[in-house]
Design a protein around this nucleic acid. Structure first.
Lengths: 156, 156
DNA sequence: TGTGAAAAGCATTAGGC
DNA sequence: GCCTAATGCTTTTCACA
């Protein structure tokens, strides 16, 4: 990774604003930072090119789309070694219900975030999908009762 | 919440596509679903209006923005009752390092996701910020060593 | 619902400070 | 770096199938 120049206040303001609303026009962004469209357009392209902006996404309503049953799942592997870990992470990539997976420190090896339509679906998912992964040792489900806070965006 | 009509295949395809790239033009979206711009534009407005699309965001690179030290933190309250829970969640809303907070089932009451620049910052954050919350009982940090998977988008 | 055409507005480039 | 001005697209509206 090449070292890139430091971001100035305007760059940071652009990033902050886009974290909140990625569909603003260049013109609207420009108004926010008190510049004309041209420099904002160029800065934006630079920020994309240099990887500060990874992608633009639409955040959907999980409840309305029948994916509102959310579970964090702690996973311990059968044994933590390279082959078993690689097998596990490879399989996880192809399970769409698992939307996030982190290798973490502590009593467990991985933390998964799982989206399902409901408890029944989740129970069957555990039995028929996660439970069949050979590299998996043990598993602990933490059901999300309430999403208290979800900032899409960093504190920059 | 009013009951809205069911989504058809085209609506779902639009949502799926926007989860991947929220900056596609109406025209590009239209090409994907083999329609002209007009109906796609109208469907999009409807999906926004009815709340299927909550917002559009730019996903930034946390490492490049000095927020790449990520920790999941299990929190147990001093006592789990309404007042204490409300106080805790109110405070959490105003801590920018805490990007996510879930009320969960299990041995702990809350699961937090925290972004920090580095371990030293995090340690001071625990002592000076989280540790000073009166409603907090105990705390367990799980450090993210690797983000194995992060799908921005639901399986729809 | 859909199409296609037209008006209004934006993104993008060029030329200059 | 920035600006303004010009261009070619896109979005958005409208008339109509």
């Amino acid at each position: 990774m090449l070292m890139t120049e430091k971001l100035d206040k305007v760059d940071l303001q652009i990033l902050r604003t886009l974290q909140e609303n990625a569909r603003l026009t260049t013109k609207e962004l420009a108004a926010q930072v008190s510049l004309s469209s041209t420099p904002v357009f160029e800065r934006l392209k630079r920020l994309e090119r240099e990887g500060y902006i990874k992608k633009y996404i639409a955040v959907l309503d999980a409840d309305k789309l029948n994916q509102g049953f959310v579970v964090f799942c702690n996973v311990k592997l059968r044994r933590m070694n390279k082959d078993i870990a690689m097998e596990f992470t490879r399989i996880i990539q192809n399970i769409p219900e698992v939307t996030e997976c982190y290798n973490i420190s502590g009593s467990y090896d991985y933390l998964l975030k799982i989206h399902a339509p409901n408890m029944k679906y989740y129970q069957e998912f555990i039995i028929n999908v996660l439970g069949t992964i050979d590299s998996l040792g043990s598993l602990e489900s933490m059901f999300v009762m309430d999403e208290v806070k979800h900032d899409y965006g960093l504190h920059i």
